[in-house]
Design a binder for these strands. Structure first.
Lengths: 126, 126
DNA sequence: GTATATGCAAAGCATTTGCATTAAA
DNA sequence: TTTAATGCAAATGCTTTGCATATAC
């Protein structure tokens, strides 16, 4: 456990948003100015490998990191600004791939991403 | 309409799989050896913009292109080899984000990705 | 004949890696 | 003291872009 890793963990813990590696680096620097981007990436990858952190790919642009590994949830992504929100809709139980659709795959997980326009980007669009 | 675009369209039409830009380029070359990768990318981007082609991000690695824009479907992605299959499970009707979960977003679409291990990668894993 | 697409090479962006230095245990 | 993490800079992989040439219409 090093100061760098502590700071990365703190940045993630403090924010209930989905930050990019760059943003995490920027915020970590506010507390520990000499922290490098490579260390941030290394730390994030370890956290992901340990199962302490989820990677979210918004479809475009850099990966985002989601500290909410506790409860299963889905994502709502803005097509304009790539903003990401967690949602916990009902109907999740239905999301099981029927055996006849599995093509021999051993299914491990389901990712559900709702795409749309956030209030800010709706205004910009008009 | 140029020979290059025709060839890209033919490669996509002939294959009911999800090819990467590199693979599309390789196959296009078999018919038109002088076609460049840049032209393939440009053509693919235009087809996506025209709504004739879907981009699929397998989570890791290069984007894949899905010529099946006709019927709404979901994807089954192998965590080992990134192979992608189309699936059409039931229960799709339930996949509407309830208004109270929309946070002001205007929801346009839902992406559902099942992740697992294909038969080949299951064997490799043991 | 004019506009547009092409090919090439270079640039771009996000991420990873090699390696010498530094700090943790 | 030994092992592992850091920072830097270079390398990587995928994709885009600038620009001169070639091609479609």
């Amino acid at each position: 456990m090093t100061p760098q890793r502590r700071v990365v963990a703190e940045v993630l813990r403090g924010e209930h948003v989905h930050l990019s590696a760059e943003t995490i680096h920027a915020r970590a620097r506010r507390r520990l100015p000499e922290i490098s981007l490579a260390t941030v990436y290394n730390t994030l990858n370890e956290l992901v490998a340990m199962g302490e952190l989820l990677e979210v790919s918004p479809g475009y642009g850099p990966k985002r990191y989601d500290p909410n590994v506790v409860d299963h949830h889905q994502h709502l992504v803005c097509l304009g600004c790539n903003d990401i929100l967690d949602v916990h809709p009902a109907g999740e139980a239905d999301l099981v791939l029927p055996p006849e659709d599995r093509h021999g795959y051993e299914v491990v997980d389901v990712d559900v991403v709702f795409r749309g326009h956030c209030p800010t980007c709706q205004h910009r669009h008009r």
